[in-house]
Computed example of a mutant assay.
Amino acid sequence: MASRTQPPARQQAPAAVTLVVGEEEFLVDRAVRERIAAARAAAGDDGGDLHDVEASTLTPGELATLTSPSLFGGGAIVIVRDAQHAGKEIAADLARYATSPPPDATLVITHAGGAKGKALVGDLTKAGASVTECPKLTRPSERAEFVRNEFRRAGRQADEGAMRALLDAVGTDLRELASAVGQLASDTEGKITASVVARYYR
């Protein structure tokens, strides 16, 4: 039997390096926020210093400085955005870092996923970075699946009619759809149907 005096276990640490690939802005932003939250939860405190920078503004060697432990203790969380715009030296720094990341830092890299800078995606993947795909959702079936998953995330059941009604009423913007699902999930009880959606979005 475990001793009651044992401290609670920390949450499992997130991947040291996460690559978020895609152009769906809402999904990219959510993935970045979730990695930051996971890093802070695993650290058991504020997670250390947070740096949010554009890849195009980084200078050679700066990544090592940003990911160094804070003077006041704790690691660092570094977000490098739009890595497709990274110069050759910076891309090399990112790939080299991913092969042997320090234990007290969390690095999240976003990349649009197109042809530009494609080699860096391959290098980071080979180095063992955790990859989150956030492609543009352009087909009606993809947006319907997004709404379906949002209801699952909220722990609620919704039938197909409800999802169609929500898409018809709110449109295609994922941020607005996610907000609508959140409102329905918090303001209603039971299974969400088309008639429930209609009461909110006439």
Rank of each mutant, 00 (worst) to 15 (best):
K191I: 01
R4A: 10
L94S: 08
D187K: 08
S70K: 12
L63E: 03
H51F: 03
R175P: 07
E150M: 02
V28G: 10
D29Q: 02
L124P: 09
E150F: 01
M163Y: 07
A76K: 02
E89M: 09
K136V: 06
H85R: 07
A158Y: 02
A41E: 12
A95K: 15
E62G: 02
R81S: 15
A144Y: 06
Q183C: 10
A13D: 13
E34D: 12
S186T: 14
V21F: 10
A127Y: 14
G22E: 04
A169F: 04
A129Q: 03
V20H: 03
A154N: 03
L107A: 07
L184I: 09
A129D: 02
A198W: 05
L71M: 08
A9S: 10
A165L: 03
A129W: 00
T106Y: 04
Q157F: 03
A91T: 13
T188M: 07
L120D: 13
D159P: 03
L167N: 14
A198S: 14
A112W: 13
F151E: 10
D49C: 11
E176V: 11
P102Y: 06
V147L: 08
G48R: 05
E160D: 14
T65M: 11
A43M: 04
P135W: 15
G113L: 01
E160Y: 08
R30N: 03
A127R: 10
G113I: 00
A194Q: 14
A37G: 12
P140C: 06
T5R: 12
D168A: 09
V181W: 00
G161Q: 01
D187T: 09
P140I: 01
V181A: 01
P103G: 09
D49L: 11
A162Y: 05
T59V: 06
Q183M: 15
I36N: 08
V78Y: 04
A91Q: 15
E150Y: 02
P69S: 05
